[in-house]
Design a binder for these strands. Sequence first.
DNA 1: GCCAACGTTGGC
DNA 2: GCCAACGTTGGC
Length: 154
Amino acid sequence: MRYWLMKSEPSDVGIDDLAALPNQTVAWYGVRNYQARNFMRDQMSVGDGVLFYHSNCAEPGIAGIAHVSSGAYPDAKQFDKKSKYFDPKATQETPRWFNVDVQLVKKIELIPLAELRKHSELERMRTLQKGNRLSITPLDPAEWKFITTKLAHA
DNA sequence: GCCAACGTTGGC
DNA sequence: GCCAACGTTGGC
């Protein structure tokens, strides 16, 4: 059992969009960074905990609790010429990009980025480090526990 | 294999 | 919209 923070832009898929999807589940398509891809492909398992994070928006922060609900499989968008995630170097035989499915567990009151920064328990979190841009980062179990039990409110 | 140029991310 | 930080690309 591992824990992850996954960033999504609310203008693309926000917490309310996720809540409105069938089974409250979304394919985490569009990751085009090898480190983030490798986390999904090599390290994620069904049931892993996910913090759903809103990035690149007016109020960045953690917007919900979710979990990994599928293993990794080829990202369909890499084959779709009309998608901005199309990758001409990817083929059906040798796909380059993978994604898992993520299912909402519960929406929470937004925990703003500025709030996360106040807690010494979280000072080592990858997402809070200067210069970090990775859209998927692992969380320590202690960080997961602190955020989900101390900071998250329904 | 180096590294400059370019593109992207994401907070502010 | 700005811009710092980082990742990728491609010429050599």
